[in-house]
Amino acid sequence: MFRRIFFDRTTKTWMITTMVIILLMPVIIGVGLYLKSLPLLEHQSLRTLLFTSDWQPSQGKFGFWPFVAGSIYVTLIAFVLSAPVCLLAGIYLTQFASSRLVKVMYPVIDILAGLPSVIYGVWGILVVVPFISKFLAPIFGTTSSGYTIMAGGIVLAVMCVPYMLNMITEVFKTVPMGLREASLSLGATFWESVKHVVIRKSYPGIISAFGLGIAKAFGETMAVMMVVGNRVQVHFNPFEAGYPLPALIANNYGEMLSIPLYDSALMFAALLLLVIILLINLIFRYFIFKTRER
């Protein structure tokens, strides 16, 4: 008996410990990265760091704007390309598709969501980059190497699709059948029911799925880095190379210890990513959290 109680106590203590460790992780990560980026923050103000574009680490000049802008730009392109497609495909899969197609699609989406980002990057190099340099850029009357913001956006869009589609179909599935029956019985067509009832009912869920898709796109590293060109410049032409934040961190870890403050700058970039993505996640997951509670 004593042994059982002892076992019960120790396991409970261990369970609580693990839970606390896991939940404190973002805080620990945040604090760790903050401490590391302190030297840079003392060196320059947050404003100049974020909104100037003079990036010359060897001269102690750290303007993050090209990277922030690059990140925003690729994320935006990815979102614009993937969101409507996801929404339509989500509607089709949950409302109109044959059950056989649905049965095939769900595992396929799952598997694709689990493919490593390097694989998407390889695909980007094999397909998207040549597609842009040989086909898309000439259409818009420019020439391009293909390693561009546009390529990053397209690869990201494709990566986000399984992720967002998964969430969106989950949301649509929670719309009760009775609600659709009610709408149809009042004389709505299938599409009108979708438009007025299903989408309306799923509104918070759709917005959350989109938000989380954006967060994922914003933090994605390898696939984007492989196709985006990685040149420090601020450009509004999507057929120019860009340099998103995650790529900055990943590309320069080798030399960061040889230049003063450079390591601090890269950790600041990671902190920036963490804060932005954590915020987006907190907000949009709260939506889902609230709807689940009800």
Binding site: L33, L212, K216, P246, F289
Partner: peptide
Amino acid sequence: TIRYLLDVLWGIPSIVYGAFGFT
């Protein structure tokens, strides 16, 4: 609430974990 926080944790990109692992 814990599930919510875990989901948020899931959303942190791997490059951030990488940078933290490095520190």
